[in-house]
Simulated assay, not measured.
Amino acid sequence: MKKIVSVMLLIIMIFTISSCSKEKETSSEKLQTLNIGILQDTDSIPILIAKEQGYFKDENLDVNIEQFKSAQERDSALQSGKIDGAISDIMAAAFANDGGFNVKITSLTNGTYDLLVNKDENINSLQDLKGKSIAISKNTLIEYVTDMILKKAGLTDKDINKVSIPQMPTRLEMLQNGKVDAATLPNALATVAMMNGSKMLDNSNNLGINPGVLLFTSSAVDSKKSEIKAFYIAYNKAVDYLNKEPKSAYIDKVIEDGGFPKEIKDALKLPVYQKAALPDKKDFDDVIKWLTDKGLIKNNYNYSDLVTDEFIK
C-alpha cells in the first residue's frame, strides 16, 4: 500500500512540476509586435516613455512607433494595415467605420489643442476673428475644436475663412509667416508658435472637451488581445512615471524620439496624464452630433458601437 501511495505522490509531483514549467514558459512567451501611429503632440508622450523606460519590454511586448505629420497619413496607414492602432480622435473612428473599415476606441488620451493668431494681426478676442482666415485640418479633431471655440463666440463657418492644411508643421509655418491669420494646433506646436510671438485665444481645455482617443483596428482587437492588454499595462506605468518624475528627467529624449522642435524644451507645458480610461460619453455624443449635422457620416453611432471597454477594467 505504501509503495502505491509513493508512486502516486511521485506522479503528482511530476505533473505539478511539468504544469508549473509549462505555465512559466507560456507567461514568458513572446507576444506579437504592435505597430502604433503617433502625431507630434503631447498625447503621444506616454507611449514614448513606455518604450524608453522599457515598460513594453517588461511585458514581453515589442512596440513599433510610427510618426505621422497629418491625420490623413495616419489614417491611410491604419487602413493599409501598416499600423494596428494610433493616437487618434472620435471623428476618425466614426469616419473609418462609416466607410466600412472597422476600428474600436479603446481609451481616451490627454492632449490640448490651441487656437492661435499671428503675432502681427490685431486680433485680441474671438470676435475679432470675423472675416479672418484660420488654418485647420479638415474634418478632424482640429476642425471640431475650432468650431466649438467659434461657437462659444457666436461665430459660424460663414464668419471666417477656413484654410485646410493637413500637415501640422506646414500649418505652423504658415501661421508664423503670416500666410494665414490664425491656426489651430496641438499643444507642442502651439508652444513653438507662442514662443515666436503668436497669441493663444482659446483652447480645448478651456472648453472642457477631450475628443482625443487611442484606437485599434478591429483586426488587432480580435487577433492581438494579449498584446493590447500588455500595451495598456505599460502605458499606465508610463503615466505613473510622468506624474512622478520632473520633466528634466525625460524631456530631451522625448523631444528626440517624438520629433518635437528642440526649442520647446523649457516652454512646453505637459498635461496631468491620466491612466487609461474610456472617453466621456458626452464628448462622444457631441462629436457624433457635429458629424451628422454636417452630413459627414451616414450612421448615427451610439457609444457602444465604437467604444470597447475590453482593455480598460
Rank of each mutant, 00 (worst) to 15 (best):
G208D: 03
F311L: 00
K247F: 06
S304R: 11
N203E: 08
K298P: 01
S226A: 14
A182S: 14
K237F: 03
A183M: 08
D285P: 02
L207R: 15
L242H: 10
E245H: 13
D286L: 14
I228V: 07
K265I: 03
N302I: 02
I251V: 15
L291S: 00
G212A: 13
I255T: 07
Y301I: 08
D285I: 08
P261R: 09
Y273F: 09
E263I: 10
V307H: 10
M194P: 13
Y250H: 08
S198G: 11
I297E: 00
K225P: 04
S226M: 11
I288H: 02
D280F: 06
K269Y: 02
V213W: 09
N300Y: 10
D266V: 01
E227G: 03
N203L: 08
F216R: 09
V307P: 04
D252R: 12
M195Q: 15
I228F: 00
M194G: 09
S204M: 14
I255W: 10
D280P: 13
A249H: 12
L268S: 03
A234Q: 02
K281S: 01
W290V: 01
M194L: 04
F260N: 04
L175Q: 04
G208S: 03
L242C: 11
D283S: 15
Y301H: 05
N205V: 04
I297M: 01
V272I: 13
E310V: 03
K244I: 08
K237V: 02
A183P: 15
V192D: 06
Y301L: 06
L185I: 08
K244N: 14
K313V: 00
Y303G: 04
S248L: 05
V272S: 12
M200R: 15
P261I: 06
I312F: 06
D266E: 13
G258R: 10
A182C: 10
A230G: 04
T308G: 00
S223D: 08
G197T: 13
K282C: 00
D181P: 15
T292Y: 01
N302F: 07
A182T: 09
D305T: 07
N302H: 13
A230R: 01
D305I: 11
V180R: 04
K265F: 03
Y301D: 05
M195D: 10
I228D: 00
Y303V: 03
T292Q: 00
D266L: 06
F284T: 05
K179L: 14
D285V: 03
P261N: 12
N187P: 06
T292S: 01
L214H: 14
G259E: 04
E310Y: 07
A182Q: 09
V192P: 11
N236Y: 09
K247S: 13
K282V: 06
P279E: 04
K229V: 01
F284V: 03
Y241E: 05
K313F: 02
A183K: 05
I251H: 12
Y235K: 09
S223Q: 02
K298Q: 11
E310I: 02
L207Y: 14
I233V: 14
